[in-house]
Structures are given as structure tokens and as C-alpha cells.
Amino acid sequence: MSEWKEIIDPDLQSTVTGDIAVGLDLGSRTGKGVLLAGGKLYTAITPTGVYMQETADKLLDKLLKQSKVARDDIAYIVGTGYGRIALNFGGTGHKIVTEISCHAMGSHYLNAKVRSIVDIGGQDSKAIRVDPASGKVVEFIMNDKCAAGTGRFLEKVAHLLDLTLEQLGNEALNADAPADVSSQCVVFAESEVISLKAKGVSAANIAAGIHLATARRVRNLVNRIGLEPDLVFSGGVSNNPGMTKALEELLGHPISRVKLDTIYAGALGAAVFAQKAASSSEAELADFALLKAK
């Protein structure tokens, strides 16, 4: 839990309302949640289960417990991410917004100057251009054809190196001569990693090579939409230091540091959309009441 004023870009703080709003980002590997209430920003994370509604309910429970907010006091919920389609929150106002719009809006609220976003998730990666005036998406491109360039790929390699995903990213920082991993396909990269291990290449150098190979895929996406500063790295892989380093090296551009772990950027964007939806619902209700009074 944090004061949202410590996290949200000062230029946009005046647009944050007092409405209690929830954003739930159900990724293919992990679900993330953000709740905005009483000047505070709460976060929750949980592995994505088989049933998306259960994962969403679990996240919501975690957020409600932390914040001590009553379920009925939530003004609006926005769901996003891979598992967003089937979400239902009964009587609470809710809607679905794509993760592309949510990552853009979330990143915008973390850094109002952001124009480019790299979002690497469990099963796809995206490059997004954002309008800094509104946080709206201007252009995006998505790689979903191949597991290379995604979190799932890194997970697979970590397993081959007997490392956790977290260890893989940190291990890459210790490399002195990153291995040349030429394959752009997760299946062939797997045999390449086994071959590198057999040749005695260190885990650190293999890890760095894998991150660079993944980053090369992402670089192509970024080049397609054009890189304009500031650049934010979001999504489930964004807290991997090895990937951050590889991206900065290949893109030749620093990644902006913000005051929230950017794996929550999508959920924050969803919460911002939820606040906006709550405000417009209230405005509509007020109009309706006015109309009835007339």
C-alpha cells in the first residue's frame, strides 16, 4: 500500500477522483490488481488459475482485506488482460478494456511524458505508442505468433538452467561474454541452450544471451512503431533486471524508472479507467435525476 500521490505523476494527480475503483489485470501467468481508495493505492498479485473469475475474485479479496474497503463501496471495476473476457462482478459496475489501452493509461499515470511502452507478458509482447496529452493509444503492434520474446520463453529457459525466473534475470547481470543465441524460435532455442550448456558456457552468459535474443524480437516491434521518449517497460517481465538491461542496450535508450513496479501498470490503467467510468456513471445518473426532477 502507498499514498497514490507518491506514485501518480504530479501532472495528473488532479484528475484522480475520490471514487473507490479497482483494476484487475488477468495475465496468462499472473493476475494483478490495483485498488484506489482514500488517497491510497493498494496492489495484489496471484498466479492465474484455471478459472479466471476465481483469480479475479481472489485478487479482489486480497485488495479488500488490505484496504478494509467494503465490497459494496467499490464504485467501479475494470477488468483487463488475457482472462478479461469472462469476468463478472454482479451488481458492481464493471466493464472490460483491453490490456493495450490499460498499459498505456497506467504508464501514462506513472509518467505523463511517456510516449513509448514495451509490454512483455507471459504469452505475448507489445510495443505501444501513447499520446502524452491523454494517455490514449496512438499505435501498437503485438507479437503473438511465437513464444520467443515472451515471458513463457524466459520461464522455459530458466527451467533448463535450473534457475527460477527471478534468478535468471539477476544471473544475466553477471555475464562477461553473453552467449550468441541465434535462434528466434523457442523450440530451437531450447536445443541451443542445451548445446551451450554442453560446451561449458556459464549460466550467466547463457542467461544474458537469451535475454538479448528476446530483446531483439522486441526491438523489431519498437522500431516498427518508432521509439519516442519517454520509454516505459511494463508487463509481467518488466521487473526482470536482465531484460531491462538487454532492452536498454539494444534500443540504445534508457527505460524510465517510475514509482510503482510496472508489472502493475495494466492494473493501474484499469483502475484509472474504472474511476473515469464511475465519474461518467455518476454524471449520467445526475443528468437522469435532473431530467426526472424537471
Binding site: 478494456v97 483491453t98 490490456e99 499505435e139 501498437f140 503485438m142 503473438d144
Partner: peptide, 14 residues
């Protein structure tokens, strides 16, 4: 695929 639908929806949101 879910990603194809995400692309379309995100495009129209944009």
C-alpha cells in the same frame, strides 16, 4: 485466438 480479438478491440478503443 484471444490475441486476435485483443488486437481488434484495442484498435477500436484507440
Amino acid at each position: 485466438s484471444g490475441q486476435l480479438l485483443t488486437r481488434i478491440k484495442a484498435f477500436i478503443e484507440m
